[in-house]
Amino acid sequence: MMTRIFSLLILFAILVVLGGCTTQPQFKGTILDPALPAPDFTLTDHNGQPFTLSEQRGKVVLLFFGFASCPDICPAELANLAAVYRELGTAANELQVALITLDPERDTPERLALYVQAFNPTFTGLYADSAILAPILKEYGVFAERRDLPGSALGYTIDHSGFVYLIDTSGRWRAIFAHGTPVTDIVSDVRFFLRERGGSDGG
């Protein structure tokens, strides 16, 4: 009798754990439900070419707002996104990571190119002047405020919100990740949104 109960327990333990590994989308990021069409924009990439968000359909896009003179937190986030890219393996071909600079005054295309490509050669740095940038920041709810640093050789810094925005393969804004979200959590959600595009195999 006791043996049978334990056999059942073992079986149950196996099922629970295997289930945790594979099926059931358990989202790690904050999910936007219902999904909204991602506010579209056309910015200039670090090669001087136009980059239109809605033309990235077919790929999952991870958007991050930052600036190249941010040597501490922004690189930590971009390093995480580079790790996400590595973890995804071949599926990363359908991932586009883009950094939108909040500091167009200092972040020239050359500088953005050096900055983002140090993390991953496929990452794109995007810039636009403040007038074009302002409505985009508003639509994505990005907080950014220039702050003078008297006495620092840096001159000024930009206080900013540090979320990563996930746009799905159909151009819909689906999820937000807080700064410092573990790499495995982002990978898990990106994988889901890439699979979802396949349609039939929901998991």
Partner: peptide, 14 residues
């Protein structure tokens, strides 16, 4: 310098 994150806003100060 120090960086802080408060209410999702990242700040850096000397």
């Amino acid at each position: 310098h120090t960086s802080t994150t408060e209410n999702g806003v990242m700040r850096m100060r000397q």
